[in-house]
Computed example of a mutant assay.
Amino acid sequence: MELLLPALGYFVWTLVAFLIVFFILKKFAWKPIISTLNEREKNIADSIATAEKVKMEMAQLQSENEALMVKAREERAQMLKEAKETKDRIINEAKEQAKLEANKIITDAQASIQQQKNAALTDIKNSIGNMVIEVAEKVIRKELSNKADQEQYIRTLANDLTANQN
């Protein structure tokens, strides 16, 4: 049991040595240790605050990036839609222009054909009229080669004219 209970002398000298070391440490080492611990605690708190701030900034940047991506997708979709509408409009305008040009060409061609047809008919009529006059002239010259036949023919024509006037 003596080993379990220290003697009073050891206890007192241990207590005195402890108090001396405690006061020396308190006087010389306690303030630097406490200030170092406080400084370390402050650095850790600052690091945690900075990490939280960076985390919040990253979250904000991520949400901004997502918003920008959504906006970019919307703008891309809008640009594609506008491009498609422009393409369709240009194609429709080109089709309408082609139809107008085709109709104009057809109308001009029909007018040209009609004009050429009328000119050809006029030429044919003039040619036929000239041929008829030549044939009639030759027939009349042959038939009216004598004077009696001419007088008889003139009387017949005069009678036909008076009959047509009545």
Rank of each mutant, 00 (worst) to 15 (best):
M1R: 05
P6E: 12
A7Y: 02
G9V: 02
Y10W: 12
F11Q: 07
W13V: 13
T14S: 01
A17W: 03
F18Q: 05
V21W: 15
I24T: 01
I24A: 00
L25H: 06
K26H: 00
F28R: 00
W30T: 01
L37Q: 09
N38R: 04
N38K: 15
K42E: 15
I44W: 04
A45P: 09
D46P: 00
D46L: 11
S47M: 09
S47L: 10
A49T: 00
A49C: 06
V54Q: 10
V54A: 06
Q60K: 06
E64P: 08
V70Q: 01
V70I: 02
A72M: 11
E74I: 01
L80E: 14
K87E: 02
K87A: 00
Q97L: 14
E101P: 04
E101G: 06
E101K: 03
K104R: 00
Q110F: 05
A111Y: 13
A111D: 13
Q115P: 01
L121F: 04
D123P: 03
D123G: 14
I124W: 11
K125L: 06
N126I: 10
S127V: 03
I128A: 13
G129I: 02
I133F: 12
E134S: 09
E134K: 00
V135R: 14
K142H: 03
S145V: 03
D149W: 02
Q150V: 08
Q150S: 01
E151R: 01
Q152W: 15
N164R: 15
